[in-house]
Design a protein around this nucleic acid. Sequence first.
DNA 1: TTGAATGCGGAATCCGGAATCCGTATTCCG
DNA 2: CGGAATACGGATTCCGGATTCCGCATTCAA
Lengths: 185, 185
Amino acid sequence: MSTPPSRRKPRTDAERNRARVLEAARALFAEQGYDVQMSEVARAAEVGVGTLYRHFPTRQALIEAAAEHRSGELLAFARETCLATPDGLARFLGHIGEVLARDRGMSEAIETAMGSTEPQGETRTALQAVAGELIERGQAEGVIRPDVTVADVNMIVCGLAAVIRNAAGDWRRYIEITLNGLHPR
Amino acid sequence: MSTPPSRRKPRTDAERNRARVLEAARALFAEQGYDVQMSEVARAAEVGVGTLYRHFPTRQALIEAAAEHRSGELLAFARETCLATPDGLARFLGHIGEVLARDRGMSEAIETAMGSTEPQGETRTALQAVAGELIERGQAEGVIRPDVTVADVNMIVCGLAAVIRNAAGDWRRYIEITLNGLHPR
DNA sequence: TTGAATGCGGAATCCGGAATCCGTATTCCG
DNA sequence: CGGAATACGGATTCCGGATTCCGCATTCAA
């Protein structure tokens, strides 16, 4: 239905370059946010801009590829670790904080992503599902108010991203406060 | 010490134009955020770009002028209304929400402003002072945890701005949750 | 080994916008 | 009222960056 049999598999060097670019991009984005020139990424990857563009036809495409990667990691952690502990939601938020604190680009992405009721990739959808699950468990255990919804957590995460990105205070404290706000009573 | 006696007062039309530009800018910024062309502002103000630039030598200058204006309004409200009621902090946050919800540009500004330990204009400093006062009162009445600081409120406001700007959920609910998180016990 | 086929590099191009310039038009002081 | 001082408008200049182009290099299948 797709990929009309590409006669030959990608050249090995091409694949290596693609990986290099993605890696360089992730590093730079994490460090400086998405406000980085394509040429800088290329240089960091020790590759020409042309090469970069062959693999990622657009600045946006590169950003998305990098973000998707991180989202995947988040999802894995959420499933493997958070779903396995009693204080799942707390762990979840804490881990997101940890990740965003080390990846400025991601904090930019998350902040806006938590907004749009738009398309939503499957990874993001899955993440929402896990969040919902975590909330329910918390409610069952009585550590989360019964009226809390995924939308609430989304807002909190959106805020968390903003707090982390714009520095100043201690984001762990932010989490502590909001989590406290979700407690019953 | 400053303003070496400008021999003549500004031409009346010049003053009128300055006002028009500022007004147009505030309206556009509120509606679309700061991502607006200078030429658009000029058009909206029914003025040439040249004129716009004579009054505000830089895009940044215009943005700051517009923001300062709003900050002033906020401060006035905070002093006049919030300091006069028992649930001051709640009123304060609610009003900020109301304002940011109607002024996209302001929500962008606040989000980043709440971060930097930078210079800080006097209006902003005053706002911080009022916030501190509101917190203390709340603590005296026992409706706010004794360990809450201005930094905490800053983070919450920063988050609020992000939540409002990136839509999706109900920001009043966000306030309700965080406020609850500040409650003792 | 060899010659398509596939990639590569990076200079050149394009483009959106901010900021500048200067010939005119308005004001306003005496 | 007259002309010096101020403003105005908006075409034009500049500039930062993304994206494109194409001659050259590398890879790979036969």
